[in-house]
Protein backbone atom coordinates (compact mmCIF):
# COMPACT_ATOMS: atom_id res chain seq x y z
CA UNK A 1 0.00 0.00 0.00
CA UNK A 2 1.04 3.63 0.08
CA UNK A 3 4.18 4.86 1.74
CA UNK A 4 2.04 7.11 3.89
CA UNK A 5 0.39 4.12 5.52
CA UNK A 6 3.63 2.29 6.10
CA UNK A 7 4.99 5.36 7.84
CA UNK A 8 1.87 5.66 9.99
CA UNK A 9 2.17 2.01 10.92
CA UNK A 10 5.81 2.19 11.92
CA UNK A 11 5.15 5.46 13.71
CA UNK A 12 2.40 3.76 15.71
CA UNK A 13 4.76 0.89 16.48
CA UNK A 14 7.46 3.28 17.62
CA UNK A 15 4.91 5.01 19.82
CA UNK A 16 3.92 1.65 21.29
CA UNK A 17 7.50 0.69 21.95
CA UNK A 18 8.05 4.08 23.51
CA UNK A 19 5.14 3.60 25.91
CA UNK A 20 6.35 0.14 26.72
CA UNK A 21 9.88 1.29 27.50
CA UNK A 22 8.51 4.24 29.41
CA UNK A 23 6.47 1.92 31.61
CA UNK A 24 9.26 -0.59 32.00
CA UNK A 25 11.35 1.08 34.69
CA UNK A 26 8.36 1.45 37.00
CA UNK A 27 7.68 -2.28 36.99
CA UNK A 28 11.28 -3.43 37.22
CA UNK A 29 13.41 -0.75 38.77
CA UNK A 30 17.16 -0.82 38.56
CA UNK A 31 19.38 -2.50 36.04
CA UNK A 32 17.74 -5.43 34.39
CA UNK A 33 19.38 -7.78 31.91
CA UNK A 34 18.08 -7.29 28.41
CA UNK A 35 16.86 -10.86 28.14
CA UNK A 36 14.83 -10.55 31.31
CA UNK A 37 13.34 -7.25 30.21
CA UNK A 38 12.19 -8.88 27.03
CA UNK A 39 10.64 -11.82 28.80
CA UNK A 40 8.88 -9.51 31.23
CA UNK A 41 7.54 -7.53 28.33
CA UNK A 42 6.43 -10.74 26.69
CA UNK A 43 4.56 -11.87 29.74
CA UNK A 44 2.82 -8.54 30.01
CA UNK A 45 1.61 -8.66 26.42
CA UNK A 46 0.32 -12.17 25.86
CA UNK A 47 -0.63 -11.34 22.28
CA UNK A 48 2.39 -9.93 20.49
CA UNK A 49 1.73 -8.03 17.28
CA UNK A 50 1.50 -10.60 14.51
CA UNK A 51 4.33 -10.60 12.04
CA UNK A 52 3.78 -9.28 8.55
CA UNK A 53 2.06 -6.13 7.35
CA UNK A 54 1.14 -3.26 9.65
CA UNK A 55 -2.43 -3.39 10.95
CA UNK A 56 -4.86 -1.93 8.43
CA UNK A 57 -6.06 1.61 9.05
CA UNK A 58 -9.60 2.72 8.33
CA UNK A 59 -9.57 5.49 5.77
CA UNK A 60 -11.53 8.66 6.43
CA UNK A 61 -14.21 9.01 3.78
CA UNK A 62 -14.40 5.27 3.17
CA UNK A 63 -18.12 5.33 4.00
CA UNK A 64 -18.75 8.01 1.39
CA UNK A 65 -16.69 6.09 -1.13
CA UNK A 66 -18.92 3.06 -0.65
CA UNK A 67 -22.05 5.24 -0.80
CA UNK A 68 -20.71 6.80 -4.00
CA UNK A 69 -20.16 3.35 -5.45
CA UNK A 70 -23.71 2.37 -4.46
CA UNK A 71 -25.21 5.51 -6.02
CA UNK A 72 -23.14 4.91 -9.13
CA UNK A 73 -24.58 1.42 -9.44
CA UNK A 74 -28.13 2.61 -8.82
CA UNK A 75 -28.07 5.57 -11.19
CA UNK A 76 -26.26 3.77 -13.96
CA UNK A 77 -28.53 0.76 -13.94
CA UNK A 78 -30.84 0.95 -16.99
CA UNK A 79 -33.83 -0.40 -15.05
CA UNK A 80 -33.64 2.39 -12.46
CA UNK A 81 -33.17 5.03 -15.13
CA UNK A 82 -36.17 3.67 -17.03
CA UNK A 83 -38.33 4.04 -13.92
CA UNK A 84 -37.16 7.63 -13.53
CA UNK A 85 -38.07 8.23 -17.18
CA UNK A 86 -41.53 6.72 -16.70
CA UNK A 87 -42.42 8.80 -13.65
CA UNK A 88 -40.98 11.82 -15.44
CA UNK A 89 -43.17 11.18 -18.48
CA UNK A 90 -46.43 11.06 -16.51
CA UNK A 91 -46.64 14.83 -15.80
CA UNK A 92 -46.05 15.47 -19.51
CA UNK A 93 -48.93 13.14 -20.44
CA UNK A 94 -51.19 14.65 -17.79
CA UNK A 95 -50.28 18.16 -18.89
CA UNK A 96 -50.92 17.48 -22.55
CA UNK A 97 -54.20 15.72 -21.76
CA UNK A 98 -55.41 18.56 -19.54
CA UNK A 99 -54.40 21.11 -22.15
CA UNK A 100 -56.44 19.31 -24.80
CA UNK A 101 -59.44 18.81 -22.52
CA UNK A 102 -59.21 22.32 -21.11
CA UNK A 103 -58.99 23.72 -24.64
CA UNK A 104 -62.46 22.36 -25.36
CA UNK A 105 -65.35 23.12 -23.11
CA UNK A 106 -65.25 23.59 -19.34
CA UNK A 107 -68.49 21.73 -18.64
CA UNK A 108 -68.23 18.99 -16.03
CA UNK A 109 -64.57 19.58 -15.41
CA UNK A 110 -63.39 19.32 -11.82
CA UNK A 111 -61.79 22.12 -9.87
CA UNK A 112 -58.41 20.54 -10.28
CA UNK A 113 -58.41 20.68 -14.04
CA UNK A 114 -59.64 24.24 -13.93
CA UNK A 115 -56.88 25.19 -11.51
CA UNK A 116 -54.20 23.57 -13.68
CA UNK A 117 -55.55 25.30 -16.73
CA UNK A 118 -55.38 28.52 -14.73
CA UNK A 119 -51.82 28.11 -13.44
CA UNK A 120 -48.77 26.18 -14.57
CA UNK A 121 -47.53 25.34 -11.06
CA UNK A 122 -50.65 23.36 -10.22
CA UNK A 123 -49.60 20.60 -12.64
CA UNK A 124 -46.90 19.56 -10.19
CA UNK A 125 -49.42 18.98 -7.43
CA UNK A 126 -51.83 17.19 -9.74
CA UNK A 127 -49.01 14.92 -10.94
CA UNK A 128 -47.98 14.15 -7.38
CA UNK A 129 -51.53 13.24 -6.43
CA UNK A 130 -51.60 10.63 -9.23
CA UNK A 131 -48.07 9.34 -8.88
CA UNK A 132 -47.85 8.96 -5.10
CA UNK A 133 -50.71 6.46 -5.26
CA UNK A 134 -48.69 3.72 -6.94
CA UNK A 135 -46.08 4.59 -9.52
CA UNK A 136 -43.59 6.42 -7.33
CA UNK A 137 -43.90 3.84 -4.51
CA UNK A 138 -43.25 1.07 -7.07
CA UNK A 139 -40.04 2.74 -8.27
CA UNK A 140 -38.81 3.13 -4.70
CA UNK A 141 -39.88 -0.44 -3.82
CA UNK A 142 -37.81 -1.79 -6.71
CA UNK A 143 -34.60 -0.09 -5.56
CA UNK A 144 -35.25 -0.77 -1.87
CA UNK A 145 -36.37 -4.35 -2.35
CA UNK A 146 -33.38 -5.09 -4.53
CA UNK A 147 -30.90 -3.58 -2.07
CA UNK A 148 -29.87 -6.57 0.03
CA UNK A 149 -31.78 -9.38 -1.69
CA UNK A 150 -30.34 -8.46 -5.07
CA UNK A 151 -26.77 -8.69 -3.76
CA UNK A 152 -27.61 -11.93 -1.96
CA UNK A 153 -29.22 -13.43 -5.04
CA UNK A 154 -26.29 -12.50 -7.27
CA UNK A 155 -23.80 -13.76 -4.67
CA UNK A 156 -22.03 -10.39 -4.55
CA UNK A 157 -23.14 -9.95 -0.93
CA UNK A 158 -20.62 -12.53 0.29
CA UNK A 159 -17.79 -10.72 -1.45
CA UNK A 160 -18.91 -7.31 -0.17
CA UNK A 161 -19.01 -8.65 3.38
CA UNK A 162 -15.67 -10.40 2.99
CA UNK A 163 -14.11 -7.15 1.70
CA UNK A 164 -15.15 -6.35 4.56
CA UNK A 165 -17.96 -3.86 3.96
CA UNK A 166 -19.37 -4.43 7.46
CA UNK A 167 -23.01 -5.36 7.87
CA UNK A 168 -24.23 -2.23 9.65
CA UNK A 169 -22.21 -0.04 7.32
CA UNK A 170 -23.56 -1.78 4.24
CA UNK A 171 -27.12 -1.52 5.50
CA UNK A 172 -26.67 2.20 6.18
CA UNK A 173 -25.31 2.69 2.67
CA UNK A 174 -28.18 0.73 1.16
CA UNK A 175 -30.75 2.80 3.06
CA UNK A 176 -29.15 6.14 2.20
CA UNK A 177 -29.01 5.02 -1.41
CA UNK A 178 -32.76 4.36 -1.51
CA UNK A 179 -33.38 7.71 0.23
CA UNK A 180 -31.42 9.46 -2.52
CA UNK A 181 -33.29 7.50 -5.17
CA UNK A 182 -36.65 8.34 -3.55
CA UNK A 183 -35.79 12.04 -3.61
CA UNK A 184 -34.55 11.71 -7.17
CA UNK A 185 -37.90 10.20 -8.23
CA UNK A 186 -39.77 13.01 -6.47
CA UNK A 187 -37.54 15.69 -7.94
CA UNK A 188 -37.85 14.28 -11.46
CA UNK A 189 -41.65 14.41 -11.19
CA UNK A 190 -41.56 17.97 -9.86
CA UNK A 191 -39.14 19.20 -12.52
CA UNK A 192 -40.94 17.48 -15.37
CA UNK A 193 -44.27 18.86 -14.20
CA UNK A 194 -42.87 22.35 -13.72
CA UNK A 195 -41.32 22.50 -17.18
CA UNK A 196 -44.43 21.01 -18.81
CA UNK A 197 -46.67 23.36 -16.85
CA UNK A 198 -44.68 26.44 -17.75
CA UNK A 199 -44.73 25.48 -21.42
CA UNK A 200 -48.43 24.62 -21.66
CA UNK A 201 -50.18 26.86 -19.13
CA UNK A 202 -49.98 30.49 -18.06
CA UNK A 203 -47.57 31.36 -15.28
CA UNK A 204 -48.35 33.91 -12.62
CA UNK A 205 -49.92 34.07 -9.20
CA UNK A 206 -51.10 30.76 -7.75
CA UNK A 207 -54.59 30.27 -6.39
CA UNK A 208 -54.42 27.91 -3.40
CA UNK A 209 -56.99 25.31 -2.33
CA UNK A 210 -58.04 27.73 0.40
CA UNK A 211 -58.96 30.23 -2.29
CA UNK A 212 -56.29 32.79 -1.54
CA UNK A 213 -53.76 33.80 -4.15
CA UNK A 214 -49.98 33.84 -3.62
CA UNK A 215 -47.17 35.04 -5.87
CA UNK A 216 -45.29 32.68 -8.21
CA UNK A 217 -42.14 32.54 -6.02
CA UNK A 218 -44.24 31.54 -3.05
CA UNK A 219 -45.76 28.83 -5.24
CA UNK A 220 -42.30 27.50 -6.15
CA UNK A 221 -41.38 27.45 -2.46
CA UNK A 222 -44.48 25.38 -1.75
CA UNK A 223 -43.44 22.93 -4.49
CA UNK A 224 -40.03 22.59 -2.85
CA UNK A 225 -41.76 21.93 0.45
CA UNK A 226 -43.94 19.22 -1.07
CA UNK A 227 -40.87 17.59 -2.65
CA UNK A 228 -39.24 17.48 0.77
CA UNK A 229 -42.33 15.96 2.32
CA UNK A 230 -43.00 13.35 -0.37
CA UNK A 231 -39.30 12.45 -0.49
CA UNK A 232 -39.41 11.70 3.23
CA UNK A 233 -42.43 9.48 2.61
CA UNK A 234 -40.57 7.65 -0.16
CA UNK A 235 -37.59 7.22 2.19
CA UNK A 236 -39.90 5.62 4.77
CA UNK A 237 -41.26 3.27 2.13
CA UNK A 238 -37.68 2.58 1.05
CA UNK A 239 -36.85 1.59 4.63
CA UNK A 240 -39.75 -0.87 4.60
CA UNK A 241 -38.50 -2.31 1.31
CA UNK A 242 -34.93 -2.61 2.63
CA UNK A 243 -36.24 -4.41 5.72
CA UNK A 244 -38.16 -6.90 3.57
CA UNK A 245 -35.06 -7.23 1.42
CA UNK A 246 -33.06 -8.63 4.35
CA UNK A 247 -35.45 -11.55 4.63
CA UNK A 248 -35.00 -13.07 1.20
CA UNK A 249 -32.49 -13.84 -1.50
CA UNK A 250 -35.07 -13.21 -4.20
CA UNK A 251 -35.27 -9.47 -4.93
CA UNK A 252 -38.61 -9.83 -6.71
CA UNK A 253 -40.04 -11.17 -3.45
CA UNK A 254 -39.07 -8.09 -1.48
CA UNK A 255 -40.19 -5.75 -4.28
CA UNK A 256 -43.54 -7.48 -4.71
CA UNK A 257 -44.02 -7.60 -0.95
CA UNK A 258 -43.58 -3.84 -0.68
CA UNK A 259 -45.85 -3.10 -3.64
CA UNK A 260 -48.54 -5.45 -2.33
CA UNK A 261 -48.35 -3.71 1.04
CA UNK A 262 -48.90 -0.34 -0.67
CA UNK A 263 -51.85 -1.66 -2.68
CA UNK A 264 -53.43 -3.28 0.38
CA UNK A 265 -53.13 0.01 2.24
CA UNK A 266 -54.84 1.87 -0.60
CA UNK A 267 -57.66 -0.69 -0.54
CA UNK A 268 -58.02 -0.42 3.23
CA UNK A 269 -58.23 3.36 2.90
CA UNK A 270 -61.14 2.96 0.52
CA UNK A 271 -63.18 1.00 3.09
CA UNK A 272 -65.15 3.52 5.20
CA UNK A 273 -65.48 1.16 8.18
CA UNK A 274 -61.71 1.04 8.50
CA UNK A 275 -61.33 4.81 8.70
CA UNK A 276 -59.76 4.65 12.23
CA UNK A 277 -56.90 2.68 10.68
CA UNK A 278 -56.10 5.29 8.08
CA UNK A 279 -53.79 7.57 10.11
CA UNK A 280 -51.44 4.65 10.68
CA UNK A 281 -51.13 3.58 7.05
CA UNK A 282 -47.95 4.81 5.41
CA UNK A 283 -49.33 5.36 1.86
CA UNK A 284 -52.28 7.31 3.27
CA UNK A 285 -49.80 9.95 4.39
CA UNK A 286 -48.20 10.46 1.00
CA UNK A 287 -51.13 12.49 -0.31
CA UNK A 288 -51.08 14.85 2.68
CA UNK A 289 -48.59 16.92 0.72
CA UNK A 290 -51.59 19.03 -0.41
CA UNK A 291 -51.39 20.70 3.03
CA UNK A 292 -48.80 23.00 1.46
CA UNK A 293 -51.61 24.36 -0.68
CA UNK A 294 -53.53 25.66 2.34
CA UNK A 295 -53.21 29.22 3.53
CA UNK A 296 -51.55 29.24 5.95
CA UNK A 297 -49.70 25.98 5.30
CA UNK A 298 -51.23 23.19 7.37
CA UNK A 299 -48.03 22.38 9.24
CA UNK A 300 -49.89 20.19 11.73
CA UNK A 301 -50.84 17.64 9.09
CA UNK A 302 -47.37 17.79 7.55
CA UNK A 303 -45.69 17.20 10.89
CA UNK A 304 -48.09 14.34 11.65
CA UNK A 305 -47.15 12.81 8.32
CA UNK A 306 -43.44 13.31 8.94
CA UNK A 307 -43.70 11.62 12.33
CA UNK A 308 -45.47 8.63 10.72
CA UNK A 309 -42.65 8.49 8.12
CA UNK A 310 -40.10 8.69 10.91
CA UNK A 311 -41.80 5.92 12.88
CA UNK A 312 -41.94 3.62 9.86
CA UNK A 313 -38.28 4.38 9.04
CA UNK A 314 -37.00 3.73 12.56
CA UNK A 315 -39.05 0.56 12.97
CA UNK A 316 -38.11 -0.84 9.56
CA UNK A 317 -34.43 -0.08 9.94
CA UNK A 318 -34.40 -1.69 13.39
CA UNK A 319 -35.95 -4.83 11.96
CA UNK A 320 -33.54 -4.76 9.01
CA UNK A 321 -30.54 -4.27 11.28
CA UNK A 322 -31.56 -7.03 13.67
CA UNK A 323 -32.15 -9.41 10.82
CA UNK A 324 -29.16 -8.53 8.68
CA UNK A 325 -26.49 -8.44 11.38
CA UNK A 326 -27.50 -11.85 12.68
CA UNK A 327 -28.10 -13.52 9.38
CA UNK A 328 -26.06 -16.42 8.00
CA UNK A 329 -25.04 -15.51 4.46
CA UNK A 330 -25.32 -18.80 2.62
CA UNK A 331 -25.96 -17.44 -0.86
Amino acid sequence: MSTAETTTGSAAETAQTATRTARQPRRTPGLVPVAETLSTAERRTPEPAPPGLPPPVRRPGAFWRLLGSELGLTFRRPRNLAMLAVVGAVPILVGVALRMVGGGDDDGMGGMIASVAGNSLMLTFVSFSFLTLLLMPVAVAVVGGDSIAGEAGAGTLRYLLAAPAGRTRLLAVKFLNVVVYGYAVTAVVALSALVTGLLLFPAGDVTLLSGTTVPLTDGLLRIALSVGYIGAGMAALGAVAVALSTFTEVPVGAIAGTVVAVVVCQVLRAIPDLAPLEPYLLPARFTSFDSVLRDPIDTGTLLDGLSVFGAYTVLSLSVAWARFTGKDITS
Binding site: R58, R59, G68, L73, P78, A154, A163, A165
Partner: peptide, 22 residues
Protein backbone atom coordinates in the same frame (compact mmCIF):
# COMPACT_ATOMS: atom_id res chain seq x y z
CA UNK B 1 -20.04 -13.49 -8.22
CA UNK B 2 -20.02 -10.11 -9.91
CA UNK B 3 -22.35 -7.46 -11.35
CA UNK B 4 -23.05 -8.69 -14.86
CA UNK B 5 -23.73 -5.23 -16.28
CA UNK B 6 -20.39 -3.81 -15.08
CA UNK B 7 -16.99 -4.25 -16.70
CA UNK B 8 -14.36 -6.38 -14.99
CA UNK B 9 -12.54 -3.26 -13.89
CA UNK B 10 -15.69 -1.56 -12.56
CA UNK B 11 -16.51 -4.72 -10.62
CA UNK B 12 -13.13 -4.65 -8.92
CA UNK B 13 -13.59 -0.96 -8.13
CA UNK B 14 -16.89 -1.80 -6.50
CA UNK B 15 -15.38 -4.42 -4.18
CA UNK B 16 -12.40 -2.20 -3.46
CA UNK B 17 -14.80 0.56 -2.37
CA UNK B 18 -16.37 -1.86 0.10
CA UNK B 19 -13.09 -2.26 1.97
CA UNK B 20 -12.86 0.61 4.49
CA UNK B 21 -9.08 0.33 4.65
CA UNK B 22 -8.48 0.54 0.90
Amino acid sequence: AFYPYLSGEANLRRFDAADPTA
